[in-house]
Simulated assay, not measured.
Amino acid sequence: MRQKIIMDVDTGIDDSLGLLYLLACDDAEIVGIASTAGNVPARRVAANNLALLDLCRAPAVEVALGADTPLAIPLRTTEDTHGPQGIGYAELPPSPRPLSPRTAARMWVDLVREHPGEIIGLCTGPLTNLALALRIEPQLPLLLKRLVVMGGAFDHPGNTTPTSEWNVHVDPEAWKEVFDAFGAAHAHPRPLVCGLDVTETIEMFPAHLTRLAEVAESLPAQEVSETDPPGSRSKASNPIVRFLTDAVRFYFEFHQQYDQGYLAHMHDPFAAAVALDPTLAVTRPATVDVELTGTLTRGATVADRSGMWGREPNADIVIGTDPAVFFERMIDKVGTFARAVYPPER
């Protein structure tokens, strides 16, 4: 049975791989894509989502525009991490597909009301749209099948401030509203949280791209190296492989610039894989809250695992996984999908 999924994304290099992963999975049915401001502004996110659907020759999927700004603070974007368009060095033509006439928050609410208990919510960006949806429909936590989010850092340094992960840093008020709402609703299963402490172990290297291109039967043989001139472009015959290579190369160069190695953390496709198959993750229940007033710690995700606050757990935090199993699955699914969408010439 195909699992219905609402994606809420700020596409974003790794968000785009998460979208590709779900499109490649026969057991996933994307029923809506909410475009949230984060890595780039919301309208750019929406344009990226529509163009990616074109690239993948996907059937019609509703893409809704989210809020332009976070709930309480100005928007901060990160083109230095994801490129001026949010997809690294990749370039995609504008899509003729229309945007949804309804807002992202309204799409969330309408879809979960239409399919109670059937939809998995997957959020790989700031939670602005979901927080706004909760204000419209407080019962949303009980209408979802489950919520899976990528964000936060638990017993681990942040990647935006010393204590804050990017998605939370952009709109900490929204994250707090979401955790509070799901806790108050006693949602079961609890939201599943993929934080930096695990997603930074999901390290993509050039060899992963080479293997994916081989599965796609894309030519010439795909090789990406840290010795390549910065900004080199792929000549891959398969358009999906070419897109991935140009997008991820930018991400490799960004991580290398910050002394993390010629690699890329695949936060969002990991969360997408966990949304479809939670057995990929080892989890631990906790009560999660978000710091809003700390002078040095605003945006920190704080987890009470021992019941010190006297509050029931409101999340299951991912505390472990096997990255090799994830990459094997991703390479097989996305590579096979790329070959099916663009069959090699014989």
Rank of each mutant, 00 (worst) to 15 (best):
L196V: 02
L276H: 05
Q257S: 15
L17F: 11
L22D: 07
P229I: 07
D8L: 07
Q139H: 08
I240Q: 06
V45S: 11
N48G: 13
P126W: 00
D171Q: 03
L263Q: 12
D26G: 13
A340W: 02
A58W: 03
A272P: 07
A315T: 07
R102C: 13
R305W: 06
L219M: 09
G320N: 10
P323Y: 09
A42R: 11
I6G: 08
P41I: 14
D80G: 08
R146K: 14
S237C: 06
L192D: 02
T227W: 08
P93N: 11
D14E: 10
S95Y: 08
G183Y: 01
R305F: 13
A207D: 11
D316L: 14
P313C: 02
F243V: 10
D304S: 05
H208Y: 08
K4T: 14
I240V: 15
T103R: 10
V318F: 04
R298D: 00
F326S: 08
R2C: 07
D68F: 02
D54H: 06
E62H: 02
G66S: 12
P93S: 10
E328R: 15
I331S: 02
D259L: 12
V40C: 14
A34H: 04
P162K: 10
A213V: 04
W175F: 15
T287M: 04
L20F: 09
N39I: 06
G151K: 04
A236Y: 01
G195T: 03
G158H: 06
E203M: 13
A72F: 04
I30N: 06
V149I: 15
G12C: 09
M1F: 09
P191S: 09
D197M: 07
R135I: 00
L53I: 10
V282T: 13
A247R: 01
I13P: 00
T293C: 11
Q3N: 11
A131Y: 00
D322K: 13
S95M: 08
F327P: 05
G152S: 03
V63W: 00
M7W: 00
S164P: 01
G121E: 06
T163G: 01
D27S: 15
M7H: 02
F337N: 05
E291T: 05
Q260A: 12
L140V: 02
D277Q: 14
A324V: 11
Y262N: 09
F326A: 09
I13S: 00
L50M: 06
I136L: 14
E214P: 00
R346A: 15
E79P: 10
E291F: 01
Y21Q: 08
V248K: 02
I240Y: 07
R43Q: 15
A90R: 09
R190L: 12
E137T: 01
P313T: 02
Q257H: 13
P313N: 03
D246R: 06
P206T: 09
E217D: 12
G117T: 09
Y258W: 14
D15E: 12
A184S: 10
Y89A: 12
W166R: 13
